[in-house]
Computed example of a mutant assay.
Amino acid sequence: MKIAQIQSRVYNDKKKNAEQLKLYLEKIKSERPDLVMLGEMFNCPYETKQFPLYAEEEGGETWKMLSHLAKEYGIYLAAGSVPEIAEGKIYNTAYVFDRNGKQIAKHRKAHLFDIQVEGGQHFKESEILTAGDKCTVFSTEFGKIGLCICFDFRFPELARMMVLRGAKMILVPAAFNMTTGPAHWDVMFRGRAVDNQCFVAGTSSARDTGASYVAWGHTLLVSPWGDVIEEMEGEEGYIIHDVDLKEADSIRRQLPLLSARRTDIYQSENGAEF
Rank of each mutant, 00 (worst) to 15 (best):
F153A: 03
R207L: 05
L158I: 15
F153P: 01
R154G: 00
G217C: 12
E231H: 06
F155T: 00
A206Y: 07
G202L: 13
P173I: 01
C198N: 11
V200I: 15
E233G: 09
E230F: 03
T203A: 06
R154D: 02
A215G: 08
V222R: 02
G217V: 14
Q197E: 15
H184W: 04
G202T: 08
F199N: 04
Q197K: 13
V187R: 15
L158C: 08
G181E: 10
G202W: 07
V200E: 02
M162Q: 11
L147V: 07
A183D: 10
I145T: 04
T179R: 00
P182W: 10
T180Y: 05
H184T: 02
V194R: 02
D195K: 00
R190E: 14
Y213M: 01
A175K: 01
D208Q: 14
K144N: 13
N196T: 06
S139E: 14
W185D: 10
T140A: 08
E230R: 01
A215V: 15
V222I: 14
V214I: 15
V222F: 05
V200N: 01
S205W: 00
D186L: 05
L221V: 08
T209A: 14
F138W: 07
Y213R: 05
M162L: 13
A183G: 02
T140E: 08
A215D: 07
W225S: 12
G210L: 06
R165K: 15
T140W: 08
I149T: 03
T219R: 00
R165Y: 13
M162N: 03
F142Y: 11
G217F: 12
V163A: 10
F176P: 03
M232P: 02
T179K: 00
M162F: 11
R165W: 13
K144R: 14
L158S: 09
A175H: 06
D186R: 11
E233F: 03
E231Q: 14
D227G: 06
I170M: 14
S223P: 13
L221S: 02
C198W: 12
F151M: 02
F176Y: 08
Q197I: 12
S204C: 05
W225H: 08
V194C: 03
F199S: 05
T179F: 06
E230H: 01
R207E: 11
R190P: 06
A174F: 09
D227C: 04
A211T: 13
F199C: 11
I145E: 04
L164W: 12
E230P: 00
M169Y: 09
R165Q: 15
V214T: 15
V187L: 05
L221Y: 04
E141D: 14
G202K: 12
L220H: 13
R192H: 02
S204F: 11
G217Q: 13
